[in-house]
Simulated scan of single mutants.
Amino acid sequence: MSDPAPESRGSFLDALRRRTVTIDAPSAVPNALRIATSYAWRLLVLAAAIGVVIWLVIQLKLLVIPLLIAILITALTWPAFTFMLRHRWPRWLAIVVTVIGTIAIVGGLFWVAVWQITRDFRSVQERTVASAEQFRQFLIDGPLHLTAAQIDDGLAQAIDFAQQQAQVLWTGALAVGSTVGHVVTGLLLTIFILLCILADGGRIWQWTTRLFPKDARPAVDGAGRAGWRTVVTYARTQLLVATIDAVGIGISAFFLGVPLAIPIGVLVFLGAFIPFVGAVLTGAVAVFIALVYNGPWIALWMLIFVLLVQQIESHILQPILMGSAVKVHPLAVVLVVAGGAMVGGIPGALFAVPLAAFVNVVAVYLSSRAWTTVGEQPLTGDLIWSTVPRKERKKA
């Protein structure tokens, strides 16, 4: 059988093309699916970028942790430092007073806490052992009728669980290190960075803004200033709240006759810088010490005072002092602190909230294009002018 003529074959193909329904590939994909995939690949790219940043932070943790600590200390001391500059103190004197005062306050707190612990340690140890033995005997002779083997097994499991959780916090991905050399190096690096920020923070920030294109510098400068004001407000508020918590719980422990009242106050003060989680853990320590040393009734009163102080903090102090500067919902705070603790241990929990507040304010500032409506000139914010020498301000 012979092939059809070329003319007939061409006419057949033309007829087939006329009958063929042209399918537009983009229109064949549902619009919702195209939107979802558009978001999906962008989210994947964003997640990859965040993952790379976290990986770099973990690899450079010996530099990043001292840097973040120095920035947080700068934010804590910023109101006092700028107060001295506004009242025409020499810059070098303001820096010396700020650094030495901070070291003296922190060192004094630790010295007083260690002094009372060494003084009362033996009596607290004896009372703790006696209370533990009484509680053990109650579990055996009481309504539960537990055996000694059951109590020992449960106690061993509880100790193992506590050690595992403590190990997770102390050896997180952002842990600076357990050796003395790492700790000393981190401490010296933190002090050096703090001195550099206080002495030359203005020029450092100007150099940072020049890394961006010229058209983007006003946005970067405004966003940085807004984020910095948020961090300063957060640090100032947490410092005041931590002081009130420590004084309230420490005085309550003292009048109730609970031992180690000063170390409890210091522990509450330090723990208050980790929102929610720190307050709960330090309050639990205070109640536990009251229980094993003073008995259940004093422990109940200690619990009442701890809850009273924390309720005053969360419902009165935080809304009034924090205001609208740090716009982070309490649920977000809890999730951020938990996530930071899982990723970076204690450093992650400490820096999670200020970082989240900074990122939130910067994102809102950039998305609303606030630098075009506020009317501020670039490089003229508090972060710059309070640290740039006056001669250089006139040249800018």
Rank of each mutant, 00 (worst) to 15 (best):
L307A: 14
A75T: 02
V96L: 14
F83P: 08
V309D: 03
M342Q: 11
I71H: 03
R390I: 00
Q157D: 13
R18H: 14
V232G: 03
Q134C: 07
V328P: 02
L307T: 15
V337L: 04
G177C: 06
P275C: 02
S178W: 02
I23F: 00
I304W: 05
D3A: 11
Y39F: 12
Y234R: 09
T118W: 12
D200G: 09
L68W: 01
W301M: 10
D221H: 02
A349N: 01
L383T: 08
T209H: 04
V292S: 10
I346V: 04
F288S: 09
A279T: 10
F276T: 08
A396I: 13
T208W: 10
A349L: 05
W228N: 11
A216S: 14
V21Q: 07
L300V: 11
T82A: 12
S2D: 09
A32C: 11
G224K: 10
L308F: 08
L307Y: 12
A113Y: 04
A47R: 02
L195R: 07
V231Y: 07
Q59M: 08
Q311G: 02
V334H: 03
L240V: 14
D382E: 13
D215R: 10
L240T: 13
G348W: 03
L169E: 07
A158G: 05
V361K: 13
P66R: 01
V266A: 11
R17K: 09
T128D: 15
Q125A: 14
V266W: 10
L33S: 15
P66T: 00
W92R: 08
L211H: 13
T372F: 09
A49I: 00
I312G: 11
T118D: 14
A253P: 13
F269I: 07
P389R: 00
A235T: 13
G201P: 03
H87L: 08
T237A: 14
Q377I: 00
R210V: 01
P90C: 01
V277K: 03
I289A: 06
S367Q: 09
R210L: 05
D160N: 12
R225I: 06
S178Q: 06
G381C: 03
P143G: 06
A352S: 07
E392S: 08
A47V: 05
L67F: 09
K391E: 08
V285C: 12
